[in-house]
C-alpha cells in the first residue's frame, strides 16, 4: 500500500514529493525513560507539490499539518518513508548540500511576534540569509531594500526591533526574510491566523501578488477553509496524521468525496444566507488520540457512514477521479454535497 500512489520516477521531478512519509515522536515514560509508545504525527503521507502551484493543507489542530511542513526543509527528520525536494532525499542530505537545498525554500510561521530574533534589528534579520550566502555590502543592502519594498514595508522599520512593530509589520518582515534569496518554495504555516481579520486580507493579497511577481510555489497550511479556497490550486485534507483527500480547490468544495471533508466544509459558516439551512454533516465526539489511533479508518468512530469494514481495514489513498485522491472505503457509494443546491 505505501507505494500505491507513488509511480515510477517521472522524467521531471515534482518540486516536493512525500513517499509514505512518517514522523513518530517517542513518548518518554517509565522508570528508565524507555519508550514503547509514539505520537504518530504524520503517518504514511504520500503527496506531491508541483512547481508554481499553491497546495493548501487543511486539518484540525493536532492533525499533523505543521509536522508535515517541518519535514520538507529537514527541520525534522522523517521516521520512515522519504521526503524528496526536487528529487533529492532530504533525510540523506547533510551539511552544505542540505543548506543549498534549504536556500531554495522559505518558511513563514504562525506567530509573527516570535518569528524574528528579539535581540536583532529587523534589518539584521532580513539580511541574515544574504550574509549566510556570502552576499555583503552594497549588494546586500540593495536587495534588503528591494525586498522590503516588495512586501510593502516602510524603510523606517529596518532599524527597529521586532517588538516595536505591529503584528502585520512583523509578518511582512518574516515574509521578506523568507523570499530574499528568491526561493522556489515558500512554506506558509498558518501565516495569518495570529492576525486581525483586516490585516489577514492584506497579507493574503500580498502573498498572491508575490506569487505572480516571482513565481513562487506555496505550501499553505491553515485550518481556515475559506482562506484555503481563496488561496489554493489544490487542497489536501489531513486527519489524524493521514491525508484523507486531495483535490483541486473548487472540486473539493463542490463535491467532497470524504465524509471528513464534508464535515469540515459544512462546519464553516456559509457567506450566502440562503445556504444557512443546507445539509450539515456532523461528526460525533472529539478526534481520537494520535498515540493509539483507532484501527482501520481513523474516522470510523465518528463517521455517520461507517460500516464494518471501516474499523477493520485502513482505506488506501486511491485515485477517485482525474487529479483527485481519496482515502475512504465508501466514497463511491456516498454522494456528499455541501455547497449551493444541496
Amino acid at each position: 500500500m505505501p507505494m500505491a500512489t507513488a509511480p515510477q520516477a517521472p522524467p521531471s521531478w515534482p518540486l516536493v514529493r512525500l513517499d509514505s512519509a512518517r514522523k513518530y515522536f517517542p513518548i518518554r515514560g517509565g522508570l528508565f525513560g524507555h519508550s514503547a509508545r509514539y505520537v504518530r504525527a504524520v503517518n504514511n503521507v504520500s503527496m506531491t507539490i508541483e512547481r508554481g502551484e499553491t497546495f493548501g493543507l487543511v486539518g484540525e489542530s493536532g492533525s499533523g499539518k505543521t509536522t508535515l511542513a517541518r519535514l520538507i526543509p529537514g527541520l525534522l527528520r522523517p521516521s520512515g518513508g522519504r521526503v524528496l525536494y526536487d528529487g533529492r532525499d532530504i533525510a540523506r542530505t547533510h551539511g552544505g548540500e542540505l543548506n543549498r537545498l534549504r536556500r531554495r525554500m522559505g518558511i513563514v510561521f504562525q506567530d509573527p511576534a516570535s518569528s524574528l530574533n528579539p535581540r536583532s534589528p529587523v534589518r539584521a534579520s532580513i539580511r541574515r540569509p544574504l550574509d549566510l550566502q556570502g552576499v555583503r555590502g552594497r549588494e546586500a543592502e540593495r536587495r534588503v531594500l528591494e525586498t522590503i519594498d516588495r512586501v510593502n514595508l516602510g524603510r523606517e522599520v529596518l532599524d527597529r526591533y521586532p517588538h516595536q512593530l505591529s503584528g502585520g509589520q512583523q509578518q511582512r518582515a518574516s515574509i521578506a526574510r523568507a523570499i530574499i534569496l528568491n526561493p522556489e518554495l515558500v512554506i506558509l504555516d498558518e501565516p495569518t491566523s495570529a492576525l486581525d481579520v483586516s490585516i489577514q486580507a492584506q497579507i493574503l493579497n500580498l502573498l498572491q501578488s508575490l506569487q505572480e511577481q516571482i513565481r513562487l510555489t506555496y505550501l499553505f497550511i491553515t485550518h481556515n477553509l475559506s482562506i484555503v479556497r481563496y488561496m489554493s490550486d489544490r487542497i489536501g485534507v489531513m486527519y489524524l496524521g493521514k491525508l484523507v483527500e486531495v483535490a483541486p480547490a473548487e472540486a473539493l468544495h463542490d463535491r467532497p468525496f470524504h465524509p471528513y471533508t464534508a464535515a469540515l466544509l459544512s462546519a464553516s459558516p456559509p457567506l450566502n444566507p440562503r445556504l444557512r439551512d443546507r445539509k450539515r454533516y456532523r461528526l460525533e465526539g472529539d478526534p481520537p488520540s494520535l498515540i493509539s489511533p483507532p484501527p482501520g479508518c481513523g474516522l470510523h468512530p465518528r463517521c455517520p457512514f461507517a460500516v464494518e469494514v471501516c474499523s477493520e481495514r485502513t482505506p488506501p489513498l486511491v485515485e477517485a477521479a482525474a487529479r483527485r485522491l481519496v482515502a475512504c472505503h465508501r466514497w463511491e457509494e456516498l454522494t456528499l454535497k455541501v455547497g449551493p443546491g444541496a
Binding site: R70, L75, M105, N117, L132
Partner: peptide, 28 residues
C-alpha cells in the same frame, strides 16, 4: 523551539551560530 530559531535552522545557520547569535543574547 521558538520560530525564530527554527527559521534560523531552515536558513542553514550552524549550531554554534544559533547558540551564540540567537539563544545566548536572549538569556542575557
Amino acid at each position: 523551539n521558538m520560530p525564530f530559531v527554527e527559521a534560523a535552522r531552515a536558513l542553514g545557520e550552524s549550531d554554534l551560530s544559533i547558540m551564540f547569535r540567537y539563544i545566548l543574547p536572549n538569556t542575557f
